[in-house]
Design a protein around this nucleic acid. Sequence first.
DNA 1: GGTAAGTGCTACATTGAAGTGACAGTTACT
DNA 2: AGTAACTGTCACTTCAATGTAGCACTTACC
Lengths: 180, 180
Amino acid sequence: MRADAVRNLEAVLTTGARMLAADPGASIAAIAAEAGVDRRTVYRRFASREELLAAIYEARVEAIERAVEDARLREAPVAVALHRYVEGIIGVNRKWPVELARMKADETIRDRRDALIREVDAFLERSTGEGLLRADVPAAWASSLLPQLMHLASQQLPELTDAQAADMVVDTFLRGLGGR
Amino acid sequence: MRADAVRNLEAVLTTGARMLAADPGASIAAIAAEAGVDRRTVYRRFASREELLAAIYEARVEAIERAVEDARLREAPVAVALHRYVEGIIGVNRKWPVELARMKADETIRDRRDALIREVDAFLERSTGEGLLRADVPAAWASSLLPQLMHLASQQLPELTDAQAADMVVDTFLRGLGGR
DNA sequence: GGTAAGTGCTACATTGAAGTGACAGTTACT
DNA sequence: AGTAACTGTCACTTCAATGTAGCACTTACC
């Protein structure tokens, strides 16, 4: 693919992610206009709206997979892994702010998302076992609170770097659910 | 208005709220079907889709206003007011789960929402002043975290009553951001 | 029981977005 | 410089959802 085409593709994907996060019903015409390309150009890369969405969600899920891998949730000390994970996801949230939960259509992406959730849940379980989190907190509560905190930090603290925002999230999370 | 008509109206509003929360693009036909009435009946009460949405958002914002009033955020002891407020909002979230932020069209509702946000922000400031919350936490962080926790508890802890879910939210919130 | 209010149903016009085709013009790469 | 890749534009078709009209029918309420 030609270099300018790559740039256009990149623009459509990131702009699309941003606009779809703000309004899940954003039209292809609107996304294309915002990305600075013609509506027709989008249809040359993607056969349908669904395919464009799938590509965007795929970009996000892949970025998350990379972040999870980098955090080494299974091996690294829990406190270290937690911070690395949070920092990574905040970066992902800022580049690909779409909500993955909306992707009900694509089987593959849903499966990869489920696997990631299991991975993080297992990590939280390990964290509880090692005393980082209190044992009397429902697993579902910890499991859903962490993504929300990361989501919040990603957009509510725009002046902070990923690492600084991660500090805030980890601090709140551990004070809120952590052991003494 | 006749009693059966009132029931239908109620059904359309609550069902609409539930469906629009799950999918903001839900069609009037889908909402009507789910509520057990004909699409045409909806159009007899509401001149347009926008009016239906406005009615739903209005129901939510009014319920929130009532909860805020009941919590007596200005006068009651901060710890008491916080719990009453959280419990009330969780009830509202469960009945009217739509996201108020999406309502950009209606000027009135946006203004009322802004006033409510100011009210709660002022309460959080008072809480900080009285030592319930740590002073080194950014106001924006506390201000956005609390609604997220309530939102989370409303749907992630369905087996808990409003009061029990509020316990969880307040505990997490105060441990996370509270003073010693 | 009678009446007015309310509903369901079929049909229709309108609008906006999705998706496609053809063609001329531009731009990156060799 | 020449070619292939890429893009923008105009012009369609299709489709789903919005919004409207009229009529037969049911049901709450006096």
